Amino acid sequence: MTQPRTAPPFDLTEYRRALGGFATGVCVVTAHSEDGAFGITVNSFTSVSLEPPLVLWCLDDSSDRHDVFAAAGRFAIHVLPVEDREMSDRFAWGICRLAPDEFDTTNPEPPRLRNALLRLDCTAHSRTTMGDHLVIVGAVQTVESRAGDALTYFRGRYGVAPEPTV
């Protein structure tokens, strides 16, 4: 049973601004549906468990791609390199379908972006509605990573998390 939402005892605009003070990585999640390959930009991504390997990300209930990702049995999470800011913007606000030259079409399930710093291929483990988001937990099946500077997001702006030099 869903509890009715009540207004918090603080200003939601200030709450959002405060949470924007937490720097996050920028990821694109991809999945297939009967209508093709789709992507969505997220910054609500984290590791849940090492044993078994589980990760989670959050999907806004009002997203125009909600149905695609809520139903996806498999998906890939890609940590973007700093040079892929345009891709992040596109999957956040614009075209949500992947062009064939953007992902590996020889093994398209789930769609794998060509330039990611990190890619986790996942199967859906669980889905839970929390507030105005669907929390999706994925069981990690494969991991691929490469060196490079990661795209970050902090206080409404893109930034960079440089590759460690140690």
Rank of each mutant, 00 (worst) to 15 (best):
A37Y: 04
A72N: 01
V68Q: 11
V26E: 11
V160H: 10
R157Q: 14
P164E: 08
D121W: 05
V42P: 01
E102R: 04
N115M: 02
T128H: 14
R127K: 11
L56Q: 08
V79I: 15
P4K: 09
V79L: 15
E144F: 09
V140Q: 11
L134A: 14
R114A: 12
T6N: 09
G156L: 03
T41Q: 10
H78L: 04
A18R: 04
F45T: 09
Y153A: 01
T2S: 14
Q141L: 10
Q3H: 14
V137E: 11
W93H: 15
A7P: 02
G21H: 14
G131K: 06
V28M: 07
I136R: 09
V79G: 02
R127D: 08
R90Y: 08
T6S: 13
S88T: 05
R119E: 12
D67E: 14
V42G: 03
R90M: 11
A23V: 10
S88R: 05
E109S: 14
T142A: 13
R17C: 07
R5G: 06
N107P: 03
D67T: 13
E144Y: 06
E86Y: 04
V135E: 04
P108G: 10
V48Y: 05
V68E: 05
R5V: 13
D67S: 13
A161R: 06
E102G: 14
G39W: 00
D11L: 09
R90P: 01
F75V: 04
R112E: 14
Y15D: 03
G25S: 11
V29T: 02
D104V: 02
T30M: 09
D61R: 13
V79M: 15
L118P: 03
P111C: 08
L50I: 12
A139W: 08
T123E: 15
P8Q: 08
V28T: 13
G138M: 00
M130D: 02
A116P: 00
L98H: 03
E144N: 03
V29D: 06
F69G: 11
M1C: 12
T165P: 04
A99E: 13
T123S: 14
D61E: 13
P110N: 07
D121A: 02
N43K: 07
I136F: 08
S126C: 06
A99R: 12
D149S: 03
A150C: 00
F103G: 14
V143K: 00
T165S: 15
F91A: 05
H78S: 07
D132S: 13
S33R: 05
P100C: 09
I40E: 05
A37W: 06
D132C: 00
Y153E: 06
C58P: 06
V160Q: 10
A161L: 15
P162A: 11
M1P: 08
A31K: 00
H32L: 15
S33W: 01
E102S: 09
C96H: 14
I136D: 01
R85I: 05
F38V: 03
D11P: 02
R5Y: 10
D11A: 10
A124S: 04
F75W: 07
S88Y: 12
V143A: 04
A31N: 02
A116G: 12
G73N: 07
G36W: 02
S63G: 10
A116W: 03
G156I: 04
